[in-house]
Lab assay of single mutants.
Amino acid sequence: GFTKEQQRLGIPKDPRQWTETHVRDWVMWAVNEFSLKGVDFQKFCMNGAALCALGKDCFLELAPDFVGDILWEHLEILQKE
């Protein structure tokens, strides 16, 4: 899971503390893990605080249908851990 990747890359547990690099690493991991298609990494050029502050509607505009939902749900789980 993502926990191993977080440990390997030194990504903080709390997504709100992520840098732009951490956000990119997470999106890249999720794309590979969940076989997601059509993700534009440029749209995720922000730090974790900005990403978490978007709200669901704005977040879902960053990625194609269903893909955004998967990313959003995973981000929500990470914020609760």
Rank of each mutant, 00 (worst) to 15 (best):
L51D: 00
W72Y: 15
H22Q: 11
R16T: 13
C52L: 12
D69S: 11
F41I: 14
A50M: 13
L75R: 01
G38C: 05
A30H: 09
F2L: 05
R24L: 11
E73K: 14
M46I: 08
E20K: 12
K37A: 12
V23Q: 01
G48M: 00
W18M: 00
G48P: 00
F66S: 15
W29N: 03
L54D: 02
F34C: 04
G38Q: 07
R16W: 09
L71S: 02
K4P: 05
K4C: 09
M46T: 04
R24Y: 08
F66Y: 13
A53M: 10
C45R: 13
G38D: 12
K4I: 15
E5M: 13
Q6V: 10
E5T: 09
G48N: 02
N32D: 15
L62Q: 06
G55F: 00
W26D: 03
F2W: 11
I11E: 02
V23S: 04
H22L: 02
L36C: 05
G38M: 06
L78V: 10
Q42F: 03
D14T: 03
V27N: 02
C52V: 11
C45L: 10
H74S: 10
V23Y: 00
Q6C: 09
G10A: 11
I70P: 06
E20Q: 13
K13C: 12
N32K: 15
W18N: 00
A53C: 08
A30T: 14
G1P: 06
D25A: 14
F41D: 11
P15D: 00
L9N: 08
L36H: 03
R8I: 08
V39W: 04
I11H: 05
T3D: 15
E81D: 14
V31Q: 09
P64H: 05
A49N: 08
V27K: 00
T19H: 08
C52M: 10
E73Q: 12
I70R: 12
E5S: 06
F34M: 05
D65I: 13
R16M: 12
M46D: 02
E33K: 14
A53F: 03
P12C: 06
H22S: 04
E61G: 11
Q17Y: 08
E73F: 06
W26C: 03
A49H: 11
Q42E: 14
R24Q: 12
D65N: 15
I70E: 05
P15M: 06
E73W: 08
V39N: 02
W18Q: 01
P12W: 02
N47V: 01
D25S: 13
A50L: 07
L9R: 13
